[in-house]
Design a protein around this nucleic acid. Sequence first.
DNA 1: CTTGACTCTGTACTGTACTACGGGGTGTAG
DNA 2: CTACACCCCGTAGTACAGTACAGAGTCAAG
Lengths: 142, 142
Amino acid sequence: MSGLTIGKVARETGVGIETIRFYERQGLIAEPARRPSGYRDYAPAIVERLHFILRAKDLGFSLKEIGELLSLRVDDGRTCDDVYSRVMAKRADMEQKIRHLERMKRALARMAAACKGAGPRGECPILEALKHEDEGEAGDWR
Amino acid sequence: MSGLTIGKVARETGVGIETIRFYERQGLIAEPARRPSGYRDYAPAIVERLHFILRAKDLGFSLKEIGELLSLRVDDGRTCDDVYSRVMAKRADMEQKIRHLERMKRALARMAAACKGAGPRGECPILEALKHEDEGEAGDWR
DNA sequence: CTTGACTCTGTACTGTACTACGGGGTGTAG
DNA sequence: CTACACCCCGTAGTACAGTACAGAGTCAAG
C-alpha cells in the first residue's frame, strides 16, 4: 500500500512542493521511495520531519544547522556522548538567545512606559533603554 | 577634534568596512559627518548601534526589522500612540520568539535525556524524541 | 479515451545580506 | 618625497533559501 504523494505532504504541512524537493536536494529529508511512475512516495513520518524543520527555521536556524540537528542520531563511529554535547551546546545557544530577547523586551517595556509620560524623543530610545538594562550585567554577549 | 574612521569602527565592532557602508545605504546607521577629505567621521555612539544590530541579527531579526526597532521614536508627524503600539507589537514578536525557543530547548533537553543513559554504543533515539515533542503541545506555532 | 489535476526533471529567477574588486584619492612615518 | 596603509565610490559577485517556469509523463473521473 502506498503512502503520500508530494502534493499531499505539501497540503498537510503547508510546505510548498518545490520547497520539499529543494529540501531533498539539500539532504534535509531522505530521498523517498518511488512508485513505478517515478512519483515520490512518502511515509507519514515525513510530516513530522517537515514540522520540525519549519519550527527550527522559525527559530533562526539555518538549513545547515537544521541538517545537523536532524542528524544528531548516533552514526557509526559517533558516541552518544558526542551527540549529547552537541545537543547541550545548541541548548546553551538558545538559553542565551532567550536572555537577550528578554533584555530587549524589558527595554521595549521601558520605552512603552516612557511613552505614557513625555514620550521617547531621544536619538535612539531603544539603545538608551538597553543601556539602563546593561547595568549590573557584564557585556558578555559574544 | 575628529572621531572614528570607518576602519577603527570596523576593528572595534568586528563589522567589516564594506558592511558598515552597506548598513549606511540600507539606512540602519545615519550618514556620518565627513572630514574635508571625504572620509567618514563617526561619533563613538556608532559602536553601540552596531553592537545592537549584531545582536538583533543574531536573534533572528532581519535588517528591515532592525531598522524598525531602531526608528522607534516620536518624531515630527508621529504620535506617541503610534510608537506605543509599534513597541507593543515588537514586544509580542519577541515573546513569540522566546516561546518558540523555550519549546525547542525543552525538545533538546528531552533528546539529551534520552541520550544520557544509552552509553557509547547503543541506539540514541533522537527522531523518536522529536516525534513525541510534536504531540501534546498545541500546534499554535504560526 | 479524453480531460484536467498532478508529478517529473532541470534550469532560471528572486530577495536578503553581505563581500570583493577596480581605479582612484588621502595621511603619515621614515 | 616616497612608500604604504587607509579611505572614497560604484559595480559586480557570492551564499542562502527559496520560487517559478518549461516541457514532458501519469492518474482518475466521467
